[in-house]
Design a protein around this nucleic acid. Structure first.
Length: 525
RNA sequence: GGGCCUGUAGCUUAGUCAGGUAGAGCGCCGGGCUUUUAACCCGGUGGCCGGGGGUUCAAAUCCCUCCAGGCCCGCCA
C-alpha cells in the first residue's frame, strides 16, 4: 500500500472521519527544496484521506508572526533595523533588496510567488496567516493556559530537550514599543495582559487576544495543533530527533488541553546537480526554480514514489532523464494489482505504484494516462536543441510516429520545461549537442579514407542540393552508395564530423538546422 | 554522549509493518527494424538480500549482536 493511503487508514482509525492535514512555512524568502517534500507529503495524505472517503482539509500555516532573524543575502543592509520584527509587519524588499514602503508586507511578498509555484503542482491549500490567528484572539486561551502552566512547560522542555532555559524565560514573547521582540522583558501577567519593559526603557502591556506578541516556537507549534484541530503534520527529521520539537510538542499540546497529531517524520531531500553547484557555494536549486525545470507531475512523482523514511537525492542533472522516463514508462504500462497471476509481493508493489501514480497527478482524480507525453525526455532534449520552433518539434514527432495529432498539454509542458533546463547550468554536458565548426583532429582520426572522401563529396553535392530534410537525406544515401561506404559507416562519419561523436540525432535534420553554408564549410574542412 | 534512518544485481531500488521459491528499471551484451531521430521492438547477462547467531516446518522479512554508511539533537524541513 502507498504510504499516503496507509497513513490515511491509520488516521481514520486513530481520529475518525474528520482530518486536518497541515504543513507550514516561514515566509522569510529562504525557501528550499525540502519544503516541497513537507508540503507534498501533507497534501498527498490529505488527498489519500479524501480518496478514502474521509472529511479532510489541508491547511497551510504561514509563520508570518515569526521575527526576521537575520539579513539574508538577497536583502540590503537596511533590513538590519527590522531584525526581531514579525515578518507580517515589516515592508517587502524592492528589486534591489531595499525596503519598499509601497511593496506590501514582507511575508506576503515572498508568499505570493511560492503559492503560485504550489498551484503549478496542483497544491491548493487553505492558507492561514499565523499573525491573523493571533490577531483574532484564537491563541488567547492557549497563551493563558501556557502562562498559567509555565513551570510545567519549562520542565517538559528542559527534561525532554535537555536545554537549559534562561531564568527570564517566559512562554510568551511580547512586542516592545518599537514593534520588535528583541530585548523585551516580561514583568508580569494579569489576564489578558502581559506586562513588559523593552530595550529602550519603555514599558507596556501586550494583549494576548491580539497580535501583540507570540508564543515561542515549540509552544506555538503545540498550540496550533489544538486550535486548528490538526490530525497530521509531517515534520522533517530534525524535528523528529530525540528531544526535538515533536517530542516536546506532544506533551505540551496535551497540557494545553488538546489531542496532538501522532508523530510523523520524513527524511530529508538533498540537491545534487550537474552544474557548478553545491550547498557550500550557496548555489542550490530552490523550489520555484525546480518547478521551472521539472514537469510538475514528475516533481510530484519524486515525492510520491519515495518512501517517507527514504532520503531523496534531487538531481537536476542527468538523473532527471531517468526520473522522467521512469514516470513515463510506469504510467504507460501501469501495473495491474488485480491481475491474477501475481505473487503477494508483486501485488503489493503494483498497489503501491498505482498509488504513487494517482498521487502524482496535478489534478486529483484525473487519469494518469492523460499526463503521458508519449516521448522520452531524452528524445525531447535532443529535439529541443536542434529545433528552435516548437512547431518543428511537433512535426518531427509526427514524422517519427510519437505524435499523431496535436500535442497535449502534458507534452507542451514538458517541452517548455525542457527548454528551461537546456538553458540552465543544470543541463548535463554530455546530453548537450555541440555542433562542430570544423572536423576536429580526434574525429578525423576515427575516420577511414573512404569516409573522408564521402564527407568531401557530400559537401560538394549538398551545395547544389535543395535544402530540405528529405533532399538532404536522399543526397546522403546517394553519395554513400557512390562511394561504396555502407549506410551505417556514412552516418557514423557524419556524426563524427558534426558532433565529434559516433552517433546522434537524425543526420538530415541536424544538417538542416545547421544551415547550408555552415554545413558545407564544416564537411569540407 | 543521546537518538533516528539506511545497507538487496555495476547503479537506483521494490518487497520488511501482516514470514511462504528474491522482483523491477537503468546500464551492459546480443538481435531486429533490410537508409541510424541518442528513437522503437525483442531477448539475455547479472544478487550466499552488510556479517554472525537465534526463533520457526519455513527468514531479505521477527529477535539478539557486530560491522559499514548517512543524518539529527542551535527556531534551517
Amino acid at each position: 500500500m502507498h504510504w499516503a493511503d496507509f497513513t490515511a487508514e491509520k488516521l481514520s482509525k486513530e481520529r475518525g472521519n474528520k482530518q486536518v492535514a497541515c504543513s507550514g512555512i516561514t515566509p522569510s524568502g529562504e525557501f528550499h527544496i525540502g519544503h516541497i517534500r513537507e508540503i507534498l507529503s501533507a497534501e498527498m495524505i490529505h488527498r489519500a484521506c479524501l480518496d478514502a472517503g474521509l472529511d479532510s482539509r489541508y491547511i497551510f500555516i504561514v509563520d508570518s508572526m515569526d521575527p526576521l532573524r537575520r539579513v539574508y543575502p538577497f536583502l540590503s543592509e537596511d533590513y538590519e533595523q527590522y531584525i526581531g520584527y514579525p515578518l507580517a509587519f515589516i515592508p517587502a524588499p524592492d528589486s534591489a533588496g531595499k525596503p519598499d514602503p509601497e511593496g506590501g508586507s514582507y511575508a506576503e511578498h515572498f508568499l505570493g510567488p511560492f503559492l503560485d509555484a504550489l498551484a503549478e503542482i496542483g497544491v491548493f491549500p487553505e492558507v492561514i496567516m499565523n499573525h491573523e490567528t493571533y490577531a483574532s484572539g484564537q491563541f488567547a486561551e492557549k497563551i493563558d493556559s501556557a502562562i498559567e502552566q509555565a513551570d510545567k512547560i519549562r520542565e517538559i522542555i528542559e527534561s525532554i530537550s535537555g536545554r537549559e532555559l534562561d531564568e527570564n524565560w517566559f512562554p510568551y514573547n511580547p512586542l516592545g514599543s518599537d514593534g520588535s521582540m528583541d530585548g523585551v522583558t516580561v514583568t508580569g501577567y494579569q489576564k489578558p495582559f502581559v506586562h513588559w519593559t523593552d530595550r529602550h526603557g519603555n514599558s507596556g502591556s501586550a494583549d494576548i487576544r491580539k497580535a501583540d506578541g507570540k508564543l515561542p516556537w515549540r509552544i506555538d507549534w503545540a498550540a496550533r495543533w489544538g486550535i486548528h484541530g490538526i490530525t497530521c503534520e509531517p515534520a522533517g527529521k530534525d524535528h523528529g530527533a530525540a528531544g526535538g520539537s515533536f517530542d516536546t510538542g506532544l506533551p505540551i499540546c496535551k497540557l494545553l488541553g488538546s489531542e496532538p497529531p501522532s508523530k510523523m517524520v520524513y527524511e530529508w531531500i538533498q540537491v545534487k546537480g550537474a552544474g557548478p553547484m553545491s550547498s557550500s557555494s550557496g548555489n542550490t536549486v530552490g523550489p520555484i526554480e525546480a518547478l521551472s525545470l521539472v514537469p510538475p507531475e514528475i516533481l510530484r512523482y519524486l515525492i510520491a514514489g519515495s518512501k517517507m523514511n527514504r532520503h531523496i537525492d534531487f538531481n537536476t542533472g542527468s538523473a532527471l532523464f531517468q526520473m522522467a522516463d521512469e514516470y513515463e514508462r510506469l504510467v504507460a504500462s501501469a501495473p495491474n494489482p488485480d491481475a491474477e497471476d501475481l505473487t503477494k509481493r508483486q501485488r503489493v508493489a503494483a498497489i503501491t505504484q498505482s498509488g504513487a501514480m494517482r498521487l502524482s497527478q496535478i489534478n486529483r482524480g484525473t487519469d494518469p494516462v492523460d499526463s503521458l507525453a508519449g516521448v522520452t525526455f531524452r528524445h525531447l532534449a535532443m529535439l529541443a536543441q536542434i529545433k528552435t520552433s516548437d512547431d518543428d518539434v511537433w512535426n518531427s514527432l509526427r514524422n517519427s510516429g510519437h505524435l499523431t495529432d496535436e500535442p497535449n498539454s502534458a507534452l507542451q509542458n514538458r517541452l517548455e520545461r525542457m527548454r528551461n533546463w537546456i538553458g540552465s547550468i543544470h543541463f548535463p554536458e554530455d546530453a548537450r549537442i555541440n555542433i562542430q565548426k570544423k572536423i576536429e583532429d580526434n574525429a578525423r582520426a576515427q575516420l577511414s579514407p573512404e569516409q573522408i572522401t564521402f564527407l568531401q563529396r557530400l559537401a560538394v553535392e549538398l551545395s547544389d542540393s535543395e535544402w530540405s530534410d528529405e533532399a538532404i537525406g536522399n543526397t546522403i544515401r546517394t553519395i554513400s552508395s557512390d562511394c561504396g561506404v555502407s549506410g551505417r559507416e556514412s552516418y557514423v562519419a557524419l556524426y563524427w564530423a558534426m558532433l565529434g561523436r559516433k552517433h546522434g540525432p537524425k543526420a538530415s535534420s541536424l544538417l538542416l538546422e545547421i544551415g547550408k553554408d555552415d554545413a558545407i564549410k564544416l564537411l569540407s574542412s
